[in-house]
Write a protein that binds this DNA or RNA. Structure first.
Lengths: 215, 215
DNA sequence: GGTATATTGATAAAAATTTAACAGGAGCGG
DNA sequence: CCGCTCCTGTTAAATTTTTATCAATATACC
């Protein structure tokens, strides 16, 4: 019966997905330090939540824990990678190779998480033709021809806010499935396309607010 | 009687704070386009939530809506800025002026949201001494001397992950109140210091997951 | 002026999420 | 082997968050 402890449809709750992702990053770093076992309370301490919540999150996935012992980190990371679906390789493109786009292209270890950075685009003729870590920057005008061929499904949008909607329309045409939007613009897309917003300015505003309104 | 419709302690719920921040960004763009009025259902359409949730969020702040009409955007933005506390100027520093740090320094309109980008730091001697938009990059070794003098309370942490904890310890010493952490490391800080995590890699992983597991 | 329409503010209900509680297995020391 | 401690898996309770509902009111139009 394929262990369906998960929600009605076996889907993980969104807050759980968010935390599992971060647990994964944490656990991998502990693995690198040759730590082999971790308990829910240790992980909670690191993540700043409660042991109960950690166990609840992990509960949804195939049992990896040993009562009285904690979790074997290697098994746990593998289990998390599996529920998150990190394996089915998906191809990524970065649109806009200014400082932000370049930072993402250079620093995110896509390969380690089932993704492959496959294409880079920019509008500026001075940038087009250059390479970032061996990957050439192509002209945005080639979006529609390149993305479908390379079967790119995910785009990181780092263009100036003014260009955001126009580029988005073209991404949608090119068959993109999800957009990670670092611009300040809300994007209009058909329902089948997923947009996630990561506006750094919001993060700063919220942090400032939290500082003024502590627990 | 100071309109305390808010929670027991008058504090906004965290999900509400997050949404209000994004509403603000949206509304300001509509203002720029000379739109003067907006209804909860229009805003919900843009934000991709429900009119009910929009009204619930706005409910917590001094009434700005006109029954049957919608909200005057100018009043609404002002009200949101007020509850979020965007006014009490707070000073910000960016630590690590690689691609990511530079992108933040250049593109975030801190001044528009009650913040002032006051200091930049880097470790690399080739970078130290240069300027980003007129602000000089100082040596990280000067952290402890500069930050307290300039009363910087918020830090954007964009150093390589390996250096994250070390730099954090120094930030804490320098009296920082909140850290926006773009590195992959979890940070150990005393309880009085707030850390918010913005790991781009997590955003990509989560988006990939959401694409594979649509609603 | 009267009526239809639109939309808020507010409350109540429903759903989702977090926290608490605890039985029971695993190891350890004596 | 017994008793003590630790810590998971699981269920139940509490809390938070979201959604639904609706009375009240402003406007527009006839």
């Amino acid at each position: 019966m394929s262990s369906d402890k998960n929600g009605p449809n076996g889907k993980l709750a969104w807050p759980t997905v968010q935390r599992l992702t971060e647990y994964l990053i944490i656990l991998e770093q502990y693995l690198e330090n040759n730590t082999e076992v971790i308990s829910s309370s240790e992980l909670a301490e690191i993540y700043s939540n409660t042991p109960s919540q950690v166990r609840q999150d992990i509960f949804r996935l195939p049992n990896t824990g040993r009562v009285g012992q904690g979790y074997k980190i290697e098994e746990l990371t593998e289990a998390i990678r599996k529920v998150l679906g990190i394996n089915n390789k998906s191809r990524v493109a970065i649109i806009g190779c200014g400082k932000m786009g370049t930072a993402l292209a250079q620093h995110i270890p896509f390969e380690s998480y089932g993704m492959e950075l496959t294409a880079l685009f920019d509008k500026d003729p001075n940038v087009v033709g250059s390479e970032i870590d061996g990957l050439p920057v192509q002209n945005v005008t080639e979006l529609e021809t390149v993305l479908p061929v390379k079967k790119v499904k995910i785009a990181g949008l780092c263009v100036p806010s003014d260009a955001a909607q126009e580029v988005t329309d073209r991404l949608v045409n090119a068959g993109i499935k999800g957009i990670l939007n670092f611009t300040r613009k809300r994007l209009k897309v058909p329902k089948r396309v997923i947009v996630q917003y990561r506006q750094p300015v919001c993060a700063f505003i919220q942090l400032a607010h939290n500082i003024r309104n502590p627990n």
